Amino acid sequence: MDDHTLHAHLIGQQGSRDSLNTPVLVLDIDALDRNIARMAALAAGHGVALRPHAKTHKSVAIARRQIDAGAVGQCCAKIGEAEVLADGGIAGLLITSPVVAPKAVERLADLARRSSGLMATVDNDAVAIRIARALDAVDATLDVIIDVDPGIRRTGVASAEAAVALAETIAGLPQLRLRGVQFYCGAQQHIESYAERRAAIEERTAYLQGVIAALGAAGFAPEIVTGSGTGSHVIDLELGVFTELQAGSYVFMDRQYLDCDLADAPAPPFEPALLVDARVVSANHDALVTIDAGFKSLSTDGGPASVHRGAAATTHFAFMGDEHAALIGPGIGGKLGAGDPVSLIVPHCDPTVNLYDYYHVVSGETLVDLWPVDARGRTR
């Protein structure tokens, strides 16, 4: 039975959150809107555009809220995500990963005809030519961004010289228009110490400035410098090199980012809005209870979840298999019984969201809506 069938009748009923069949993906709409407003105000205050990354939420509804708050569009990791958002009426999309498969390139050309403000990243001459040919076949054009490798060797041109060479190739392709560069320091986003993270970002930003200078000297000064993330947004705004931010996880704040000192401040600038509500299914031991959320309910790449409510925040979480996890703490078996609810802060929001069909949108203790995870599974 799907989420809508199970829970739609609970919408608007006071206290209906407690009646949800668990495990369930819960979105606190009040916290979500506060997070969206805070990041929008911060970017606007620095005169920087905000193009949040939709790979985090995969949701047309959330994208609309971000754009209504001032975002210029959305970033998408894959063309499948971009297709879903475009079909939902979202404009200003940037595909941040290279599109290379023959069928994917055809889809990109088709999307360029119907998605206003679409941009895509490129890091390879042959792929740029392939995309241009596909665009020519459908009489379309596309704005492109050169992806610059920040040092992790995942994607991006590997030097300033390579960036200039690719810009020269793009300049010879009338179907493409070069708009700027992308630079995402993914390896630095989760450095927990603010001082250490800042030092790492400053070093990488100096490298980026060298690439920008080389492009400018060759006649390709970038109009757009896009990148950054939730972990580095404060630092990047202060350094003043980016013209737009791609931060995504700030809307939800998973445990990985809550473990970081994001803003050199006593409290994080954003609050947990995404939770998994679970329920105790067994409480037969003094120091351990079992809940109904395991590997299939929470991403495991970010370590353990943490307790948001229902038990002490210091309670230890441990996966116990596909369907279960343990909450471990002194006397917890006497405090929680079978059927009692607990809410968890997810370890890593992006892949956790991809496990669910719907957000269960709550305000306080009341279910107020069900939003589909529109781009769930759109990995190609």
Rank of each mutant, 00 (worst) to 15 (best):
Q188G: 02
S193L: 02
T169Y: 11
Y194H: 02
E223L: 09
E168R: 03
A137V: 08
Q188W: 03
D147P: 09
I224H: 10
I235V: 15
R197W: 05
A214R: 06
A206M: 01
C185W: 01
I224M: 11
L173V: 14
R179Y: 10
T155S: 04
Q182E: 14
L135N: 04
V148W: 09
Y207C: 07
A132E: 03
A217R: 15
E168C: 06
I129D: 09
R154V: 08
R177Y: 04
R130E: 15
R153K: 12
V144D: 15
A187K: 05
E202W: 01
E161W: 13
R198A: 14
I224V: 15
G186R: 00
Q189L: 12
P174H: 08
G210K: 03
L135A: 04
F220T: 15
A158P: 05
D147T: 02
A167E: 13
L208H: 14
E202A: 09
G231T: 06
A163D: 11
E196G: 09
L173A: 14
A160Q: 02
L208K: 13
Y194I: 00
F220E: 13
A134Y: 06
I235S: 01
I235A: 01
A162E: 15
P174T: 08
A132H: 00
V181M: 10
G219E: 11
V211Q: 11
I145V: 12
E238F: 05
H233M: 03
L178T: 12
L208D: 07
A126T: 11
T226Q: 08
L237W: 13
R198G: 06
L173G: 15
D236Q: 14
P174G: 02
L208S: 08
H233G: 00
L176V: 11
G156H: 10
I191N: 00
G151F: 10
I145M: 07
D143A: 14
V127L: 05
Q209L: 03
E223Y: 03
V234E: 02
I170K: 05
I131N: 04
D139R: 14
L208G: 07
E196S: 13
V127R: 00
T169R: 15
G180S: 08
S228F: 01
L239D: 02
A137G: 01
L237A: 05
R198V: 12
A187W: 04
A162C: 02
E168F: 00
A221L: 13
R154M: 07
G151E: 03
D236H: 12
R197K: 00
A126Y: 03
T141H: 06
A162G: 04
G186H: 01
D236G: 07
A187T: 09
D143C: 10
I235G: 00
R133L: 08
Q189G: 10
A199C: 04
G172P: 06
A217W: 07
A199D: 08
A187R: 06
I131W: 04
E196R: 06
R204L: 03
V164L: 14
R133S: 14
A214T: 05
T205N: 12
Q175H: 13
D125Y: 07
V164S: 12
F220I: 10
G229N: 09
T169H: 13
Y184F: 08
I212A: 13
